[in-house]
Simulated assay, not measured.
Amino acid sequence: MTVKVIGAGFGRTGTLSLKLALEELDCGPCFHMFELAAQRSHLNQWESALKDETADWDRVFQGYQSTVDFPACVYYAELIEKYPEAKVILTTRESENWHQSAINTILTIRPSLRQLIKVLACYPFSTEARKTYRFAIHNRALIENKVFGGKISDKAHVIKVYEAHQQAVKNTVPRDRLLVYDVRDGWDPLCKFLGVSVPSTPFPSTNDRGDFKKVTRDLFFSF
């Protein structure tokens, strides 16, 4: 099994809906941030990638046929070289709408350093507590610092980074491998791009802000 589809879009562009759609189209399992959050396996590989070291992508994606969302979307350029036969999907959303969603979820709903330290202090012998701490620190370093340069409160800057990433993907990925995709367009463009039949079921729609808050609360504060 190898990676057939690479999602290059940032979180909050319909990536969870795309994950569910790809899995319905037999392009799954699909790796999403929620997989890393739930399993917290291969953190060493993601930490190595963040340090500009070589990650063992085959190990990271073992058992997966596709990937979407953070953290993998940050490494789309490396992944398209590693998996030259994989198709690339750039999920997109109008910049202002994306920012409004992101600032109310992925950019702000996370434990503070004080809360993370408290988890470690309360559960000093818990392997899960240590993994949760590492996972949260990695995400903070990747999304807040590497991607957005530590300026997540600067709206103009965040939108500029988002738009620059979108353009970079379009400039980097060969056109015959790339689908620029709004999940509101449903099955037709996705299925045409992948060369598969359109399912009879409705296109997946999930992960609103309430869902995200619940997942985050369960993830970090369920000890």
Score class of each variant (00 low, 15 high):
residue 177 R to N: 06
residue 72 A to L: 06
residue 116 L to E: 05
residue 182 D to Q: 13
residue 76 Y to N: 02
residue 57 W to T: 01
residue 51 K to D: 11
residue 37 A to M: 13
residue 154 D to C: 10
residue 61 F to A: 00
residue 164 A to T: 11
residue 205 S to F: 14
residue 66 S to K: 01
residue 127 T to G: 12
residue 82 K to D: 03
residue 218 D to V: 13
residue 76 Y to F: 15
residue 164 A to P: 02
residue 123 Y to R: 07
residue 222 S to A: 15
residue 169 V to K: 03
residue 109 I to Q: 12
residue 44 N to S: 09
residue 160 K to L: 10
residue 97 N to S: 15
residue 181 Y to K: 00
residue 142 L to E: 03
residue 23 E to H: 03
residue 28 G to H: 02
residue 44 N to V: 03
residue 179 L to R: 01
residue 183 V to A: 08
residue 162 Y to R: 01
residue 62 Q to M: 10
residue 28 G to Y: 02
residue 209 R to M: 15
residue 56 D to V: 03
residue 5 V to N: 03
residue 64 Y to L: 05
residue 82 K to L: 04
residue 28 G to V: 04
residue 92 T to W: 05
residue 78 E to V: 07
residue 179 L to S: 00
residue 74 V to K: 00
residue 185 D to E: 14
residue 62 Q to W: 11
residue 168 A to E: 10
residue 178 L to K: 01
residue 57 W to N: 03
residue 124 P to F: 10
residue 104 N to A: 14
residue 133 Y to H: 13
residue 215 V to N: 07
residue 166 Q to F: 12
residue 36 L to G: 01
residue 12 R to L: 05
residue 61 F to C: 02
residue 94 E to P: 09
residue 156 A to G: 12
residue 33 M to A: 10
residue 68 V to A: 09
residue 95 S to P: 12
residue 35 E to K: 07
residue 28 G to L: 03
residue 127 T to N: 11
residue 212 F to C: 10
residue 25 L to M: 04
residue 51 K to R: 12
residue 6 I to M: 04
residue 70 F to W: 14
residue 62 Q to I: 06
residue 115 Q to G: 13
residue 171 N to E: 15
residue 147 V to M: 10
residue 57 W to D: 05
residue 122 C to V: 09
residue 193 F to S: 01
residue 183 V to L: 08
residue 60 V to Y: 03
residue 185 D to P: 07
residue 164 A to Y: 08
residue 120 L to A: 11
residue 154 D to I: 08
residue 119 V to P: 00
residue 30 C to G: 02
residue 172 T to K: 02
residue 58 D to E: 15
residue 88 V to I: 07
residue 93 R to P: 10
residue 183 V to Q: 06
residue 106 I to S: 04
residue 192 K to D: 13
residue 67 T to P: 06
residue 112 S to E: 08
residue 142 L to T: 05
residue 21 A to K: 03
residue 67 T to D: 04
residue 172 T to N: 02
residue 201 T to L: 12
residue 130 R to V: 10
residue 176 D to T: 10
residue 20 L to M: 13
residue 147 V to Y: 01
residue 57 W to H: 04
residue 17 S to M: 08
residue 9 G to T: 05
residue 134 R to H: 08
residue 8 A to M: 04
residue 20 L to W: 11
residue 67 T to L: 11
residue 170 K to I: 15
residue 74 V to W: 00
residue 124 P to V: 09
residue 95 S to E: 12
residue 209 R to S: 15
residue 69 D to E: 09
residue 219 L to G: 08
residue 63 G to P: 03
residue 152 I to F: 13
residue 72 A to S: 15
residue 117 I to E: 13
residue 13 T to M: 07
residue 173 V to M: 11
residue 177 R to K: 11
residue 176 D to S: 11
residue 50 L to S: 03
residue 188 D to T: 12
residue 39 Q to D: 14
residue 112 S to K: 07
residue 163 E to G: 04
residue 158 V to W: 06
residue 220 F to I: 09
residue 161 V to N: 00
residue 218 D to S: 15
residue 161 V to L: 07
residue 135 F to D: 02
residue 92 T to S: 08
residue 106 I to Q: 04
residue 114 R to T: 13
residue 126 S to D: 07
residue 135 F to M: 05
residue 117 I to Y: 13
residue 74 V to P: 01
residue 159 I to V: 14
residue 212 F to W: 11
residue 157 H to K: 07
